[in-house]
């Protein structure tokens, strides 16, 4: 299980407490005037298939370092005071939290924008893979979505640092 307190990135099987994470983020930021957060959840249905469980596989070590690089990139682009990312791996059920991104800044513009940037980039470059299992035990790997790739174009992200 990867834990990197310095980079503010956690990849873990355990669930997380959003209120605790946000308090810790604000404390670390020092003088935050704005915090923007994003939370992703497992849906009951995906691509018209019922989801019984979702398994998240990842590349330990690279997941942490690639998300940390995204956070650093965001902090270089916008005046971010502090940022945190938690991503769960292992077996999850519909309704469970998968990912949390929190960004603290003096003003809301930087907080909103950096939070969205981190999430967009995470979806297309962090080495994580979802496998959905249906109620009958049928399982399949979730396919990457072109729309996620297209969202990256808004950020003028160089192809050198992307995962595909």
């Amino acid at each position: 299980m990867g834990v990197d307190g310095d980079s503010g990135v956690w990849v873990q099987e355990a669930d997380f407490d959003i209120a605790h994470l946000q308090r810790e983020l604000v404390a670390r930021a020092g003088d935050a005037g704005a915090v923007a957060t994003f939370t992703g959840y497992v849906r009951k249905n995906n691509a018209s298939r019922e989801v019984h469980t979702m398994e998240l596989e990842h590349y330990e070590g690279m997941t942490e370092s690639s998300i940390a690089a995204i956070v650093e990139d965001a902090a270089a682009r916008w005046p971010v005071l502090a940022a945190r990312v938690v991503h769960r791996v292992g077996r999850l059920r519909p309704g469970e939290q998968i990912v949390w991104v929190g960004v603290a800044a003096h003003h809301r513009d930087a907080a909103f924008t950096a939070c969205e940037f981190i999430m967009d980039y995470l979806k297309t470059s962090a080495p994580l893979w979802k496998r959905e299992c249906g109620p009958g035990g049928d399982a399949h790997w979730v396919a990457a979505r072109r729309s996620d790739e297209e969202r990256l174009l808004r950020w003028d992200v160089s192809g050198e640092s992307r995962a595909e």
Partner: peptide, 10 residues
Amino acid sequence: VAFFPPVTGG
């Protein structure tokens, strides 16, 4: 060295 398919986290 690692080989893997397009990523689908988040």
